[in-house]
Design a protein around this nucleic acid. Structure first.
Length: 329
DNA sequence: AGCCTACCTGGGTC
DNA sequence: AGACCCAGGTAGG
């Protein structure tokens, strides 16, 4: 399949900050070609940005995504809708940035450099199990664990240029009792039990359909439902609410966000060893009061800024604030 | 309710 | 080299 394009400039969407900012762990960046490869919706995608377009290409997909008729245009339209939904392209990000800048000086000061950070609309199952893996862990190891889940239990989608791609496993697969010991073997540590147990609980609650009911609930209710699962606490529950259940006011408070809050907004919280439940609520409420009903999205922009302070050269976004200058080689 | 602490693993630091 | 520390936390006390 060839490249398709969607009109979308870099201030509306910055791929590196969005795909490599700790939201999803399934995207890889080919720096030479400046192309991204990733999997969602049981489909393998390549993405790139050329001028004011987001371009996408389908590398492979499962039959259930394919229409039986020969009308390829219908299928093309479906893929396009899938991309638009994943990046929430119906939302005008420049307007949101402007709004958040007006409400907060810190946001204003870093939003020029960290433009185009979008909250992905992820699939709840992948999101949930990825973030169980994330607890007390490094991004590099989280990524490799998510990959292991897929190769071990996911359905094969296709092979391309010598690489085989797998969909994220279903809840049923992860609920099998032997999963825990297998994952232990694969180096998941204590998360192995959380994964199997949560999966079994979700199956009990109705499987993938259960997530729809969570999306229809109010944020706080969805959050407390999620926290009934073994291995899901306040932080991961908020990640799921924010990233895959459309509760954009959810605001995961982790070590980074705590640091940001203590340094810039709530000085009395400085120097604490760990974030207590009380502090968690205080920090979340502070940002919700500051930014409003999409506080979680705004906070993600700050989170990206904080992440990148530590690995400046690796993942720097292209500077679009100035006319383009090519580096001499 | 609020505060410990143990927990798997791997990469970094000194 | 080897002992520490830390990483997008959580359960159980």
């Amino acid at each position: 399949m060839s490249w398709n394009k969607i009109s979308c400039n870099r201030r509306e969407l910055q791929l590196i900050g969005t795909l490599n900012g700790g939201q999803s762990f399934r995207w890889t960046h080919d720096k030479d070609k400046d192309e991204w490869t990733g999997i969602f919706s049981k489909t393998v995608w390549k993405l790139r940005q050329i001028e004011d377009y987001l371009q996408y290409k389908v590398i492979g997909t499962l039959p259930e995504n394919s229409t039986k008729s020969n009308k390829n245009s219908k299928q093309d339209e479906k893929f396009k809708k899938t991309i638009e939904s994943y990046f929430r392209l119906n939302l005008n990000l420049l307007e949101s940035y402007k709004e958040w800048s007006g409400k907060d000086e810190l946001f204003k000061s870093c939003c020029q450099q960290f433009y185009g950070i979008r909250m992905l609309k992820q699939e709840p199952v992948e999101n949930l199990f990825s973030f169980i893996c994330s607890q007390n862990n490094h991004i590099s190891r989280i990524s490799s664990m998510v990959e292991k889940l897929c190769t071990q239990y996911g359905e094969e989608i296709c092979s391309n240029e010598g690489v085989t791609y797998y969909a994220f496993p279903t809840v049923d697969k992860l609920a099998q009792p032997e999963v825990e010991s297998k994952l232990r073997e694969l180096g998941f540590g204590y998360r192995a039990k959380f994964i199997q147990k949560s999966a079994a609980q979700i199956v009990e609650l109705g499987g993938a359909k259960w997530f729809q009911t969570l999306q229809d609930m109010k944020y706080k209710d969805a959050r407390s439902e999620l926290m009934k699962l073994h291995g899901i606490g306040p932080k991961v529950a908020d990640c799921i609410c924010l990233m895959s259940l459309d509760h954009l006011e959810a605001l995961p408070v982790d070590t980074h966000v705590y640091q940001i809050a203590a340094q810039n907004y709530l000085p009395h919280l400085r120097g604490k060893k760990n974030v207590t439940e009380k502090m968690y609520v205080e920090i979340g409420d502070h940002f919700r009061k500051l930014y409003g009903d999409m506080a979680g999205w705004a906070h993600t922009v700050l989170f990206c800024a904080d992440l990148k302070k530590f690995k400046q050269n690796e993942n720097d976004a292209p500077d679009v604030s100035q006319p383009k200058k090519r580096k001499k080689k």
